[in-house]
């Protein structure tokens, strides 16, 4: 029920006085309401839940998390016998 799907904003427009957008989910395009992310720009990634953008996705924060995981990976590899230099 609380699932959200990340997608890229490719179009912004007003409909019935509401800020709406076209969202690209890896090739599938759907409409979503952007009222809760008025700062959104075309090209931004957002998370869509029941047809609404909940927030924008922070590229920087995502990269920081992935960097941290890479660090844990390299430490784990160094622990294997024969891998430690």
């Amino acid at each position: 029920m609380c699932l959200g799907i990340p997608g890229k904003i490719i179009e912004k427009y007003k409909l019935n006085n509401m800020l709406m957008g076209k969202i690209d989910f890896g090739g599938v395009i759907r409409e979503a309401c952007l009222e809760y992310v008025p700062e959104a720009e075309i090209g931004d990634y957002t998370l869509i839940h029941v047809g609404f953008a909940l927030n924008l996705i922070s590229e920087q924060e995502a990269q920081d998390t992935l960097d941290l995981i890479k660090e844990i990976e390299s430490l784990a590899l160094a622990d294997y016998p024969g891998n430690s230099q």
Partner: peptide, 11 residues
Amino acid sequence: GFETTAPANCM
């Protein structure tokens, strides 16, 4: 819904 769905339902 939980809080996640409230913004949509309120709108």
